[in-house]
Write a protein that binds this DNA or RNA. Structure first.
Length: 410
DNA sequence: CTTAGGG
DNA sequence: CCCTAAG
């Protein structure tokens, strides 16, 4: 097989994954009117880093990033990048603008209306939180430059909002007559036009495959069997390393972190170790585990079950979960290149970093430093991780971690 | 390219 | 954190 063939196949698989990703994120959105940013961000970041020339793929990745922002829209305190003063919904409005830039005539008005609605909502969410100062700033940013379009109704609306802002009343009818969920519904109705409702190719492939490969009930109810997806990649002659993003492993890690955090919240009620539930395979010999795929069944069910918002993640994870600016990252070749770049000299380990590391070791096992590295998306090398583990043992920090997160499997 | 272990 | 041997 020539390398050109391989490239093309990789491209195809990449497309499929994008397609599949949109499918997953969109389904989340319409079903629960929410998108789990902390999980889907891995997907989006990976996609953003891919070299995908197809216009549709770019649109799709914009769509997904928009959905994540809409989900966060209630909380105007969130910022998607550090030096931005824009609130989530303002940020989302920018993404939307790009998304609908060359929208076709029949939809043009709808698009503009929705964009307007989003800008209003950006003001409203501040008002609902009784923060009229921020609301005012958002308003000025979003509504000041509408001089170019002197439509009457727009002006009217603008004045209405201005009046509302003056009252400083969070119970104003403008705010109470529409909930945020109504806005999401509106979003859903409009954004339908951007999502391909057909089944993703990758999913179709996987489904046709799993019919005769397994009778596992989990796989039957249309849910995705990631193992099958990977198999498809294999059969396409695409090496897993380059084609299959390691967000799968990252997700496993994140889920584990969430579980542990929730467990900690419930605290002393039960003595059950979170490990026992999340890492069923412990009898494997190290050699065997090395070749086993990431626990597929667990990730399968997670696809459908990551519904709840988790506001209790530790700060390190939240930091790590910030979305990249799609506008700037979309053309970059390698997502890993854009990660927190290492200082030239030595970088001390932060406690939160060590905690994440320890939990990663719990998931992937001692010695699988490479996989741990990928899951953590850290700039540190496998060897550094190995050395860190050694010093954790030597210094006795292991005891602190053991108390915090439980034992680590051998 | 990965990991283990010595320095 | 680096180096190197071994898989």
């Amino acid at each position: 097989m020539s390398t050109a063939d391989l490239d093309e196949k990789q491209q195809t698989v990449t497309r499929w994954i994008v397609e599949y990703a949109v499918f997953v994120v969109w389904n989340d959105f319409v079903k629960h009117k929410t998108v789990d940013r902390n999980n889907n961000r891995d997907l989006i970041q990976w996609i953003a880093g891919q070299i995908i020339t197809g216009k549709r793929e770019i649109q799709q990745s914009y769509l997904m990033s928009l959905l994540c922002r809409l989900n966060d829209g209630r909380n105007y305190m969130i910022r998607y990048n550090e030096d931005s003063i824009l609130t989530v919904l303002e940020d989302a409005a920018e993404v939307l603008q790009i998304l609908i830039k060359d929208i076709k005539p029949p939809l043009y008005k709808e698009g503009q209306d929705f964009l307007k609605a989003m800008r209003q909502e950006a003001v409203y969410v501040c008002c609902r939180a009784n923060n009229f100062d921020d609301a005012k700033e958002v308003f000025n940013r979003q509504f000041s430059s509408s001089a170019d379009k002197g439509a009457e109704d727009k002006e009217h609306n603008k004045q209405e909002i201005q009046k509302m802002l003056k009252t400083k009343n969070p119970q104003h009818h403008l705010l109470t007559s529409h909930e945020y969920d109504d806005f999401l519904l509106k979003a859903q109705n409009f954004l339908k036009h951007f999502v391909n409702t057909g089944k993703p190719s990758l999913l179709k492939m996987a489904e046709s495959r799993q019919d005769h490969t397994t009778a596992d009930p989990i796989c039957r109810d249309k849910r995705v069997n990631l193992g099958s997806l990977m198999k498809v990649c294999d059969e396409m002659g695409v090496s897993k390393e380059s084609s299959w993003p390691n967000f799968m492993e990252q997700r496993a890690l994140k889920e584990h972190l969430q579980q542990v955090n929730q467990e900690k919240k419930k605290q002393s009620n039960t003595n059950i170790n979170a490990n026992a539930a999340s890492t069923p395979t412990k009898e494997c010999s190290p050699k065997k585990r090395k070749h086993a795929a990431v626990d597929e069944s667990r990730m399968d069910t997670s696809l459908a079950s990551r519904v709840q918002e988790n506001s209790n993640l530790n700060p390190y994870v939240i930091l790590n979960a910030e979305l990249p600016q799609l506008q700037t990252k979309i053309n970059e070749k390698s997502p890993t290149k854009s990660l927190p770049s290492p200082g030239k000299l030595r970088n001390p380990w932060l406690e939160a970093e060590v905690n994440e590391f320890y939990q990663a070791v719990q998931i992937f096992g001692i010695g699988n430093w490479s996989r741990i590295k990928n899951a953590m998306r850290t700039y540190r090398t496998n060897v550094q991780l190995k050395d860190k583990w050694r010093t954790i043992l030597k210094t006795g920090e292991i005891n602190r971690l053991k108390k915090l997160f439980g034992d680590v499997k051998k």
